[in-house]
Nucleic acid binder design. Structure first.
Length: 276
DNA sequence: GCCCAGGTATAAA
DNA sequence: TTTATACATGGG
């Protein structure tokens, strides 16, 4: 992806395959906030940036050449052609065309696996505004203080705490799940690092040894935290959407990009609730 | 007040 | 192995 450093920040010519709102506000992440002007501000690994679109360009403010190459390029997954994947999905599975066409510019971010695991534990039986609130309180309470904001606290830090220590988060029954996850990750009982390329069935099984991590949270962790694009959250809701909207689509036939297909199916059924 | 949130643990059928 | 319920909390 072509880029240049200007006085505005790092400027990347990307064309159409990056819609900020559809990417940062689709439920895959919980630490990006939209401003009135449509720009988004977020913190990743102790770095805070503001991102905006300007025509064919994406501008990342407060982003050095080094930050771009070592962090943001990967986080925003700029080496993956999402237009290509869309095309491939439709060719592979024409039934998906209406869903793929229903939303534009979604990218799957390469988030930190621990942050994704923790965030999706918090997300269970919860709504997005409150999930964001709990995650923010977790960072403010236990993350490192940065010049302007807080980092996401490490599993090692959370592992030292008890469920009572998390009471200020108002996370309810999820507090003990967060602690259990942190302790298993911190001790190495659950090794997130090796899940980038271990057989996905083994990864699922290992994640689900954590209390409070079921099929859905495990799948979201794999998809959003470990960039396993073949991961597919097969929950009750998605089964229903698939069977009513896409009876011809077999989950197994969605192949290596099932996780991305799922994003389109989810959005399509959201804007066509009468079909469910 | 009431319903619900891209769920999961636990206890019965 | 499949099917109900409780779960903590607060947004709409």
């Amino acid at each position: 992806m072509e880029y240049k450093i200007t006085q505005k920040g790092t400027e990347i010519t990307i064309g159409s395959c990056f819609d900020l709102k559809n990417t940062f506000d689709c439920g895959q992440c919980f630490r990006w906030e939209e401003a009135e002007d449509g720009s988004f501000t977020g913190i990743v690994k102790n770095k805070k940036v503001r991102i905006l679109r300007e025509g064919e360009s994406v501008i990342i403010e407060n982003c050095t050449d080094d930050d771009y190459n070592t962090l943001w390029k990967s986080y925003l997954d700029f080496d993956t052609s999402y237009d290509g994947i869309r095309q491939e999905l439709v060719e592979h599975c024409p039934e998906l065309k209406c869903a793929v066409d229903s939303i534009d510019g979604i990218r799957i971010l390469r988030q930190d696996p621990w942050e994704a695991l923790c965030s999706f534990i918090i997300s269970q039986n919860n709504n997005i505004p409150r999930i964001k609130g709990i995650v923010a309180k977790l960072c403010e309470g236990f993350g490192d203080e940065l010049s302007d904001g807080y980092s996401f606290p490490s599993a090692d830090v959370i592992a030292q705490l008890s469920a009572e220590d998390l009471a200020p988060l108002r996370a309810g029954f999820r507090a003990r799940y967060i602690i259990d996850a942190a302790r298993k990750v911190s001790s190495g009982q659950v090794c997130l690092e090796q899940m980038y390329d271990a057989p996905i069935e083994e990864c699922r099984k290992e994640l689900m040894t954590i209390t409070g991590v079921g099929a859905k949270v495990a799948e979201c962790t794999l998809l959003y935290g470990l960039h396993r694009l073949e991961a597919f959250p097969i929950d009750v809701w998605m089964k229903k959407a698939l069977s009513t909207l896409f009876s011809a689509v077999e989950i197994s036939s969605l192949g290596e990009y099932a996780g991305i297909a799922q994003q389109y199916i989810f959005h399509y059924s959201r804007i066509n609730p009468q079909l469910l």
